[in-house]
Amino acid sequence: MSEILVLVEHVEGQVKKVTLELLTLARSLGAPSAVWAGAGYSPDARAKLAEYGAEKVYVADSADIGDYVVAPKAELLARLVSEKSPAAVLVAATAEAKEIAGRLAIKIDSGVLTDVVGVQDGMVAEQPIFGGGVNVRSRVTKGTPIVAVRPNSTPIEAATGAGAEEQVSVTLSDAAKAARIVERVKEAKGARPELTEAAIVVSGGRGVGSAENFAIIEKLADSLGAAVGASRAATDVGWYPHQFQIGQTGKTVSPQLYIAAGISGAIQHRAGMQTAKTIVAINKDAEAPIFELADFGVVGDLNQVVPQLTDEVTKRK
């Protein structure tokens, strides 16, 4: 079976869920080979990748791969593509991995498809465009297909692979070392899952009323193990940090469940969330456009509904 390279997303040595989704998807296309780039590799990580079907695990865990912006990982993948001739390269459709895919595409002179939600026989990829209004099926016509797959688009399924480890030593070119990361600043966000990866997202908008009142959104999120998002109206006034903004100029999320509280549902907001599987809206205005998308909606004051929902969820756990 042809080899499919999967770039592993990891944080503090832990394999992220999106990688397990990619491995699951890769199994339907060929034999998955996981590519670990950067520090933090461990036998546990290998075991996790094998559990989800990695036949091979290429490990390039020298620290300097993580010291420069994007280019080293593209260089590593380009080298593996030329050595192993895989049938495709899969990466997560995160901001950074899409950039890796972009640079890789140029290095290996191959087409790249971004924000893909499914791949079928013949490497035909499904992509929602225009904020989910149109579904496109596309394919790469030159080179080795590079496909950036959106988190949460493939349900994960374990199926043991051999997980044969192969160390890859890399000597980075000077070009790959042009933009050096001199400091990584971590802003506290508690134990919440990452926004683009989260299975559940709870978002607040202008209706939340203040920065302090976002606490009720956070409490609901924590009761569900969810990430917190915000509309632009809420980030513009500084009630919630910009990196949590969802929409056209913020993040795109496709969670299993999206709860919008005090958000009207403007087209630019929808562009970032309307591919969510299930949508719940809480808004005091029965005419708010968000209700057109909602699978379930409550017309009411979020200050009443949200805390009551949090209590109920906690009670029923």
Binding site: A105, V134, N135, T141, K142, I279, I282, A294, V298
Partner: peptide, 28 residues
């Protein structure tokens, strides 16, 4: 181009959901 669109279709509209008015039990 290095890629091509095979075909495309307008996304089917979402099935309409259940909307309730809060009468003190909206959270429940």
């Amino acid at each position: 181009s290095w890629s091509e669109v095979a075909d495309f279709a307008t996304a089917p509209p979402r099935a309409s959901g259940t909307i309730v008015k809060d009468e003190g039990d909206g959270g429940v």
